[in-house]
Design a binder for these strands. Structure first.
Lengths: 390, 390
DNA sequence: GGTGCGACGGCAATCGTTTGCACGATGCTC
DNA sequence: GAGCATCGTGCAAACGATTGCCGTCGCACC
């Protein structure tokens, strides 16, 4: 039996996944024609239709590796996180991933533990995988990490942590810190401690700045001995809180720049025989899911939306649209850990019994981002999409 | 000026990263010779030394994309997680990543939300990136997901969740569940509820099995109306607990098959005016960092070591060593949420006074894994490295 | 001094896709 | 109806590394 041109019994017939060549043999068209037809709408053209049909019959999927070699683009974007075990970074990553996959990109993620050497190394690794753009979630305000990234010649956008004037999608950390400060002052606290985050992180710094602003507005002093580094982990939070308690047993409230350090602080308070929310008002930041269980007041922002917008911004940048910064609102969620006003005897728990959450249920409306300066002030409520970050 | 063969002013001189050809021009050797010399020890050979010197002078880094096209290997391994926002999966991922990078591999991660369609899709995406092996962290006991993965023809290993007889690195969930059961019974509880995990997950099932075993051993009944699905998230945990409380307000203890559902359960209890640890003993599973802050009893295992071993196992499998299953110990950590015996009183616990953590401080020795059947019984203490999976 | 062996280096094909160029046919405009 | 633009197709050269196959050379051994 001679081979009808219908049954491909050529060399390529047998093994492996179908390639352009398989399709070319099947359709009788040149491989380059097939390649082009595949990028057209199947309905646009008889050839396109033919090729698409053959492709789906044979289960063809283009090989991104080979394509990437030729085009020098990979269809992948890189994300650099400080640690995915930080659930906020994981949420951001997941949102990025979802948008990216939907738009035909893969996400390659690397974590650096905020170590500058690892940052360089992992970015270079991503580069050698030819990522088409970078999302940096572990930016440092000091050092030249981000400046270096900017020289790489590929699109990039920061998320969560801003740095200098680089395009960044962040939440309004400063405003969040301000709300915490106002809240604690309003509850009657005067000896308020700050368990700060690492100095290289804009989130930490901005939260602290806003917090200090609120205290200053109210005329409340924040002496140096009420400030301790609390890191990003429960362990460092616990140690910082221990030091604070040792030095200033009279403190009545503490603002932890992250929920994780707040977890550590909570443990420290309990170990000292103190009850968070009754003896020491405690507020965290980020409102991770565990915070609700812990009845911990915290500042909420829309992390998933942050990631989503970062992904869209980057993909647009890859397509030539210059990246613009944006800032999402941050809203304090008051729960039992700070709901009781200072000295509140009867106040201690107005409700049915326990010192319960004050305004937990109704989700604080997490609106759309305000475009504009990343370190934007909370003012300017007018939806003014002007003023890109310089 | 004629070109001395020292200064490469050839076409390739100007732009872009150096390639093998650049090195070839620089050294006067053929590109294939350069390629081979690069894989030799620089000290082994004058040629190798020459090439390595040139390479580091020019900052050459081989292009994994091009290499991958030719070799059909990528130097990357794929990990499929159900969600990296589950901090346990994130910990496992981070451990895998660390080992992999150290061994010269990259890790490509995809998350599937336990959706079977997404599982297929993401695995195929990883495949088209030519990953050299797969680590599956979202295995289902039902369905044919893992069986399908096994037919793909690339090395794979499961982690966290086992399935059938496939090679899996897990912790001893059954033994963990058993310890929880024994503990709650020993505390005097008889109306004990189970907030189970999803039925497709071996972790959930094994934990439940061990738990039931312990109750049965003690002659304690676990009627169907004390069992509710609690999912993997605080929301589902909260809902499940609400249903349990509505149906059986007399329950005195609850075992949540994951810490996250325990968080939700805690919220539900509080909302019902009950205090976890005083009114209803609560135990979770996994001992995530927030559990300590919440004073939640939980079952601890060495997730990072799990991930590490999974990575090593997979990389060995890529090198031809057949993958073997392993099981790590799981140890109950008793904290305030379950430290008070039922009916309180003098029984309250031999120790000092407050119903504080019973065995929290001293890290329960998290030993090396016992190799052997993934569903291994806790017996066979003898360090017996025999018995591959089945 | 001849033969054989091993090591090393060069040649060229290859992985699968994209893309600039050329060519022919078609359709449109004037 | 002629000229010109447009479109679709084929051709072949990339992208950068790896690798089977040889030729050549050096060395050792007989």
């Amino acid at each position: 039996m001679s081979a009808p041109d219908d049954t491909p019994d050529l060399a390529s017939g047998a093994a492996g996944r179908p390639t352009l060549r398989t399709l070319s043999e099947r359709t009788g068209l040149h491989v380059s024609t097939v390649s082009r037809a595949l990028r057209r709408d199947p309905a646009s053209d008889p050839t396109a239709a033919l090729v698409h049909t053959a492709a789906s019959e044979l289960g063809y999927r283009r090989d991104p590796v080979a394509a990437s070699l030729r085009t020098r683009r990979s269809g992948a974007i890189g994300m650099v996180a400080h640690a995915l075990t930080d659930v906020v970074q994981a949420i951001v990553h997941e949102a990025i991933d979802q948008v990216a996959v939907q738009q035909g990109y893969d996400v390659l993620v690397a974590s650096t533990r905020d170590d500058p050497a690892a940052q360089r190394q992992r970015v270079e690794l991503l580069l050698s995988r030819r990522v088409d753009g970078l999302i940096i979630a572990d930016a440092h305000e000091d050092g030249d990490y981000v400046d270096w990234v900017a020289t790489l010649g590929i699109p990039y956008v920061l998320v969560m942590r801003r740095a200098g004037d680089h395009p960044a999608i962040v939440c309004d950390d400063r405003e969040g810190g301000r709300q915490v400060g106002r809240h604690l002052v309003a509850q009657g606290h005067r000896e308020i401690a700050l368990l700060a985050g690492p100095g290289y992180s804009a989130t930490s710094n901005d939260r602290a700045v806003g917090f200090r602003e609120a205290l200053a507005e109210a005329g409340v002093d924040l002496p140096a001995d009420l400030v301790e580094p609390g890191g990003l982990h429960p362990t460092s939070g616990r140690e910082g809180m221990d030091r604070l308690l040792a030095r200033r047993p009279d403190l009545t409230a503490v603002f932890c720049a992250s929920d994780f350090s707040a977890f550590g602080a909570t443990t420290a308070l309990r170990a000292a025989g103190l009850v968070p929310g009754r003896d020491v008002a405690t507020v965290g930041f980020n409102d991770v899911t565990a915070a609700a269980a812990l009845d911990l007041s915290s500042v909420r922002s829309a992390h998933a939306e942050l990631g989503e917008l970062a992904a869209r911004t980057l993909i647009a940048a890859i397509d030539g649209v210059p990246a613009e910064s944006a800032s999402f609102p941050a809203t304090l969620v008051v729960r039992g850990s700070s709901a009781t006003p200072l000295g509140g005897g009867a106040v201690l728990s107005a409700g049915g019994g326990a010192p319960r959450a004050a305004c937990d249920g109704p989700d604080p409306a997490v609106g759309p981002p305000r475009h504009g300066s990343a370190s934007g002030t909370a003012a300017a409520a007018a939806a003014d999409p002007s003023g890109a970050a310089r």
